[in-house]
């Protein structure tokens, strides 16, 4: 009963006048809060809050044989679990399409931006490499789980250190001081189309009535690059809208990277 036709109409009227139900401007985020090292058993972890939305991400490492096509590279696996704790809409059971899509968006942003230098995760070419697992759990869904999950994943990687190793065995529980080989300045953000306008960081109500979204994963080093895109939602976007959206997202990404302690 959260989203009624009446409220939907009101939100659309407000958006048309560049206003939102909670008083924010269209491209304004709620307060973003990042906390690292929130669980002891993970090699790296982070909790991210955007307003009431909360996500926890954890990083675990193990040793494995490399894939045949990349014998000198470590491996990466991202998983998102919509454990029913965080919303009445999440259900126990196999991962939903939404959870799989989100995991793959995060995977692509991290992989394609070379955020992790996978070559440096190789211990013995063709035989032994590190495998990095990122597991993301939304704890409370109040909208914009996509951005919260991306930021939590990046923060957890930044928090992570290698576990101790003896030959080809991990000595779990024993951590080294060595950080993962990471590049810097990577983020992904999502812009939502609501009515004829674009907004950032929707609440659940806004998210539910938006017709389209576009997520862009970017890196900001000497130059800005785009590494991953996911267009979602049921309504198509015009070429002009896509161009505009990407520009807005790149600008916001830089702003947020400067603002939060990732």
């Amino acid at each position: 009963m959260e989203v009624t036709n009446l409220t939907k109409k009101r939100i659309e009227e407000l958006i048309a006048r560049n206003k939102r139900l909670d008083g924010r401007s269209l491209l304004e985020f709620r307060k973003i809060f990042v906390e690292k090292g929130v669980t002891k058993k993970a090699e790296g972890s982070a909790r991210v809050r955007i307003g009431n939305t909360e996500v926890i991400a954890g990083v675990k490492l193990n040793l494995t044989e490399p894939f045949q096509d990349t014998p000198d590279e470590g491996a990466l696996a991202v998983n998102v679990e919509f454990f029913p704790i965080g919303s009445e809409k999440f259900e126990p059971g196999p991962p939903s399409v939404e959870a799989v899509e989100l995991a793959r968006i995060i995977d692509r942003i991290i992989r394609e931006s070379h955020f992790i230098n996978l070559k440096k995760l190789c211990i013995k070419k063709g035989e032994l490499v590190w495998m990095v697992f990122i597991d993301v759990y939304p704890i409370n869904d109040d909208g914009n789980l996509i951005d919260a999950s991306i930021i939590a994943s990046i923060a957890a990687l930044k928090d992570a250190v290698f576990p101790a190793r003896e030959e080809d065995k991990v000595k779990y529980g024993e951590l080294t001081k060595q950080r993962l080989p990471l590049n810097d300045s990577v983020i992904g953000l999502t812009l939502y189309k609501l009515g004829q306008k674009f907004i950032f960081d929707p609440t659940t109500i806004e998210e539910e009535i938006s017709q389209a979204r576009i997520t862009v994963g970017m890196s900001y080093r000497k130059k800005e690059f785009i590494h991953a895109i996911q267009k979602g939602g049921e309504t198509p976007l015009s070429e002009e809208e896509i161009k505009e959206a990407i520009k807005i997202i790149i600008k916001k990404g830089k702003e947020i990277l400067n603002k939060i302690n990732l």
Binding site: L6, T7, R10
Partner: peptide
């Protein structure tokens, strides 16, 4: 039936 307005919970 309520036709117009804002619904809050």
């Amino acid at each position: 039936k309520l036709d117009e307005g804002l619904i809050i919970l």
